[in-house]
């Protein structure tokens, strides 16, 4: 008799504890700030892509989830400062294990991870994210590539003075000094 009441006691007691149920998808969970979510290909403050097509991310990937093919920038069509840009960029989220080694490998800070974790679909094809899906959105002051280098004469200006450029762009100056 006492034994069965003891069981109800557990139920009763739980009513006064904090609820662990998540109201997903009505209420989205806020992740930890460094949560390894979907990747993003970043841009320079003028909208040029940071990716140089070096493939180091693809080499670092232990799950072989990344495919990169570099292309040549030309005077007519410039996508990134410098000689090369990532012409084809694909991440297969069926394979990606979210380890972040690609982020560590990226020499230009082009590839970073967002906190977005909603990576589910009903078919395989849509889980191979292409460059269009991965590129960071154009912020105010950015211009859709291809376009010439707006913030300097060569890629060194972008790499060496990156933080100042970013700051300048934020302040709405849009130029180097």
């Amino acid at each position: 008799m006492f034994e069965s009441l003891k069981g109800f006691g557990v139920t009763f007691g739980t009513m006064f504890k904090k609820v662990v149920t998540e109201e997903y998808p009505e209420v989205k969970k806020v992740t930890a700030p460094r949560f390894h979510g979907r990747h993003q290909l970043n841009r320079h403050p003028d909208g040029l892509e940071k990716c140089v097509g070096c493939e180091l991310c693809a080499w670092a990937c232990p799950a072989d989830a990344i495919f990169v093919e570099g292309g040549d920038n030309t005077e007519e069509a410039r996508f990134s400062p410098g000689e090369r840009f990532g012409a084809d960029y694909q991440i297969n989220y069926l394979r990606c294990i979210g380890c972040g080694l690609c982020i560590e490998a990226c020499p230009t800070r082009s590839l970073t991870m967002t906190n977005e974790y909603e990576l589910a679909d009903d078919n395989r094809q849509d889980l191979i994210f292409t460059k269009e899906d991965l590129l960071a959105p154009l912020l105010p002051g950015m211009e859709q590539p291809p376009h010439p280098m707006r913030l300097g004469d060569n890629e060194q200006d972008y790499y060496v003075n990156g933080p100042q450029l970013a700051k300048a762009a934020q302040e709405g100056k849009g130029t180097q000094q």
Binding site: C54, E55, G70, R84
Partner: peptide
């Protein structure tokens, strides 16, 4: 050939 590939690729 510059930046096209690496020998181990």
């Amino acid at each position: 050939y510059r930046f096209r590939a690496r020998p181990f690729d």
